[in-house]
Simulated scan of single mutants.
Amino acid sequence: MLIAQISDIHLVPNGELAYEAADTANALGKVVDHINGLSPAPDVVIVTGDIADGGRLDSYQVARELLAPLAMPVFMVPGNHDHKGRMAKVFFDHAYLRTHPDSPNGGFICYAIEDYAVRLIALDTVTPGDHGGGLCPRRLAWLDATLKEKPDVPTLIFMHHPPFPSAVGHMDLEPFKHREDLSKLIQHHPQVERITCGHIHRPISIRFGGSVATVCPGVGMQITMDLRPEAPSGFVLSPAGILVHCLNQSWGDPPVLLTHLNLVEDFPGQFGPFYPFFNVENPK
């Protein structure tokens, strides 16, 4: 099974630039073409939040148009820049975006996809107006009960906010709430192969709760890797990146989920042509 992950698109209405610099619609178009050109094709695409910058309705309409050419199903969770109601209104055919406050997940956009070799569990880490994200006891209880339903199925959890500090100072000002509780919960569910997130606009990996947690780079822009605590908040227009999570079984080992980082060219040939290896030697 192949799972393509994209994140942090920060779309704005047609003709506008995000933060007066980033052509995020153009970047998403290139990413969609890139994913459709992968061979073998991914089974699904997951989007880990910040689809629209500022949650404007017309930004989601741009997102719907640009994501429509994807040849595989798309599943998404909101980010802190998203407006859940407007997101659900535009993506009206994504039934999982419609919530009810009396549901077991507390009215958050939390759901499980059971149709593939890897079980996909979406967690909504967004409380409106809160930048740092987190989970509440009700969402944690929902996650625990959902994981208990299928303890033997390899599982990927996807959400917007990483439950760990990134060392990018301005992104760590507001800690992820109940991260210790989430870590302890994951330790009781060894089928969780990966927890994958967005928000930081940089590829990051870390051990978390006995599993592996990753962060997907951004589509719209990349946050500068300045690890000084006093580093200013800002971004660069590096090429977009995606993560591809692959359920792999080789060398007679049990199936395992591994993750590849894939950069997306800004223009054809940016990274040069394909060069074959030849006359390869392994000195003795």
Rank of each mutant, 00 (worst) to 15 (best):
K89Y: 10
I35T: 10
Q61S: 12
G54I: 14
F75K: 12
V77M: 05
A71V: 06
Q61M: 12
F108V: 00
N105F: 05
L66D: 06
Y96G: 10
L67T: 05
F92G: 06
L97V: 06
D82W: 03
F92M: 01
K84R: 15
L66R: 13
M76N: 09
L66M: 08
V74H: 06
L97T: 02
R64T: 08
L97S: 02
S39M: 09
F75T: 09
I109A: 13
D93T: 03
S103N: 13
M72R: 09
D102L: 15
S59T: 13
Q61T: 14
M72D: 08
K30F: 01
D53G: 04
L67I: 05
G107K: 09
F108R: 15
H94N: 10
M76V: 09
V31N: 01
H81R: 12
V31G: 05
I109Y: 03
A41W: 09
K30Y: 01
S39D: 07
H34S: 11
P40V: 13
V31F: 08
A88S: 10
L57H: 08
P69M: 02
D50V: 11
V44G: 00
D93Y: 04
A52V: 07
T99V: 14
I51H: 00
P69E: 02
V74F: 00
A112S: 15
H34I: 13
A71P: 01
H100S: 15
A71E: 11
H94F: 14
V31K: 03
L97H: 00
F91C: 03
G49E: 02
H83D: 04
V90I: 12
P104I: 02
P73E: 10
D58T: 09
P78H: 05
P69V: 11
P69T: 06
L66H: 01
E65T: 13
K84S: 11
L66V: 09
G37W: 02
A112G: 08
R98S: 14
D102H: 10
G55R: 05
I113S: 01
T48W: 04
K84L: 12
E114G: 02
I109Q: 09
D93S: 01
G54M: 12
L57F: 04
V90D: 02
F75C: 07
A71M: 07
K89N: 12
G106Y: 06
T99L: 11
Q61N: 14
V32T: 14
V47A: 13
R98T: 15
P78W: 02
V45L: 06
D58R: 03
E114P: 05
G107D: 14
V90H: 10
P40C: 11
P101A: 13
A88P: 11
N80L: 00
V90A: 10
G49I: 00
A41R: 15
P73H: 13
R64L: 14
F75R: 11
L97G: 02
R56V: 01
H83R: 01
K89D: 12
Q61V: 11
R64Q: 14
A68D: 13
T99Y: 10
N105W: 00
G54W: 13
P104F: 04
K89P: 06
A63P: 04
A63Q: 07
D102W: 12
M87N: 03
S103A: 15
V32N: 08
H34L: 12
N36I: 14
V90N: 07
